[in-house]
């Protein structure tokens, strides 16, 4: 898969260069249009602009389709985010496994999931501060980075933003498309994806394909890949 990566990120860069530098593009703005173009199907909508409308668009699939056109390809997906963001629940949800007995992840979990001709190898790495230094051991050959955020944990928005910014600066992850899951939308106190996108200055990302997606790993809304 390494051969297709520069192409996609190159194309992505071109698209973003058309984005006006002024922030907060409203509905129908350039950013909206770019993101909408990535998405497929009649329900396509931009997570950054209208995040709360159900049904949730299927963010991961649209990225995968952009990434690799040939079927039967393996895709290495790296799941990162702070502790208690919901990474393992998301992983188990992707693999259609029971999510009721989850405990904090020590080290990592890995699962392979078949989805629409893709073989997704999903790596879920523990998120507690003390093991974040190990994250870099798993960067190599990553096709898609999924960054999970607990949308209700407002106290740690700054911390999660810093971690994400550091990841985007990593050389080994340069050009790797990033899908940000604004998780726990089932909670009343959850911040909408648009607020998170703005808080994290996602619109300043120019060097890769990116998307933000509202989801609830608990109810599986917004995370289906089948």
């Amino acid at each position: 898969g390494a051969g297709s990566e520069p192409r996609t990120s190159e194309r992505c860069k071109e698209r973003f260069s058309a984005t006006p530098s002024s922030p907060s593009p409203g509905p129908g703005g350039a950013l909206h249009a770019v993101i909408r173009e990535w998405r497929e199907g009649p329900d396509a909508q931009c997570g950054a602009c209208s995040p709360s409308r159900a049904p949730y668009p299927q963010g991961l699939l649209s990225i995968l389709r952009k990434l690799k056109s040939a079927p039967d390809q393996e895709v290495r997906i790296l799941l990162l985010g702070l502790d208690n963001a919901g990474k393992t629940t998301l992983l188990k949800q992707l693999a259609s496994e029971d999510i009721s007995h989850i405990t904090p992840t020590q080290g990592f979990n890995i699962k392979s999931v078949q989805s629409q001709g893709f073989k997704l190898n999903v790596w879920d790495i523990g998120g507690q501060r003390k093991i974040r230094p190990y994250w870099r051991n798993y960067f190599e050959n990553t096709d898609v980075l999924i960054y999970v955020i607990d949308s209700a944990d407002r106290k740690r928005f700054e911390e999660t933003g810093q971690e994400l910014a550091e990841l985007l600066d990593e050389e080994k992850l340069s050009g790797v498309p990033v899908l940000i899951f604004a998780n726990k939308q089932d909670l009343l106190t959850a911040a909408p994806a648009s607020e998170i996108a703005e808080g994290l200055n996602l619109h300043t990302i120019r060097d890769r394909m990116w998307q933000i997606q509202s989801c609830s790993a608990l109810t599986a809304e917004g995370v289906q890949v089948r």
Binding site: I99, T103, P104
Partner: peptide, 13 residues
């Protein structure tokens, strides 16, 4: 525990 408040670590158990 993982962070400064153990309450989120009990989870599924």
């Amino acid at each position: 525990f993982q962070g400064d408040d153990p309450k989120t670590d009990f989870r599924g158990m």
